[in-house]
Amino acid sequence: MMVEKNESNSHTASVMNQLEDTSREIKECYERLDFIETKLRRRYYPSEEKKRLEKEVQDIKTHLSRHENSLRSLRGENRVAMMLSVLILALGIMVYFVYCILFGS
């Protein structure tokens, strides 16, 4: 089964690193989900094994849902950070132009 990331580690990493990690984990979940579902379709399993695989599918889907919500949240944080950096850049340019106008020769 998959192991959840430690929440304290996620606060120290940058948003971009978190985005990459979460995207990678989602990709891995989809690959595992596809593998299990293909396995279930192609072969007959005893009821206990089939129930175990179906439970794993449900666990992976729950895990995916959690990661997709996390990814959506991280993208929002990234968007806010980007807007803030653009705002700071625009403010710097405005200060430069005001300086040039007032003290330029």
Rank of each mutant, 00 (worst) to 15 (best):
M2F: 13
V3L: 08
V3T: 11
E4R: 06
N6E: 11
E7W: 07
E7Y: 09
S8H: 10
S8A: 10
N9R: 09
N9P: 00
S10Y: 05
S10P: 00
H11F: 15
H11E: 14
S14A: 01
V15I: 14
V15K: 09
V15D: 06
M16F: 02
N17W: 07
N17D: 11
N17C: 04
L19P: 06
T22W: 07
R24V: 00
E25Q: 12
I26Q: 05
I26S: 05
K27W: 02
E28R: 01
Y30F: 06
R32Y: 00
R32P: 00
R32V: 01
L33F: 02
D34C: 05
F35I: 04
F35P: 00
F35H: 08
I36E: 01
T38I: 11
K39R: 14
R41W: 10
R43E: 14
R43C: 06
Y45R: 09
S47K: 13
E48R: 07
E48Q: 13
E48G: 09
E49L: 11
K50G: 01
K50M: 10
K51G: 07
R52D: 13
R52V: 02
R52F: 11
K55Y: 08
K55N: 08
E56I: 05
I60H: 10
K61D: 06
K61Q: 12
R66C: 02
R66W: 04
H67A: 04
E68N: 06
N69I: 03
R72F: 14
R75W: 08
E77W: 11
A81T: 14
M82C: 12
M83S: 13
S85D: 13
V86R: 13
L87V: 12
L87H: 08
I88Y: 10
L89T: 12
L89Y: 06
A90Y: 02
L91E: 12
V95D: 08
V95Y: 13
F97P: 01
V98R: 02
V98I: 12
Y99C: 01
I101T: 04
I101C: 00
I101F: 13
L102R: 04
L102A: 01
L102F: 08
F103G: 05
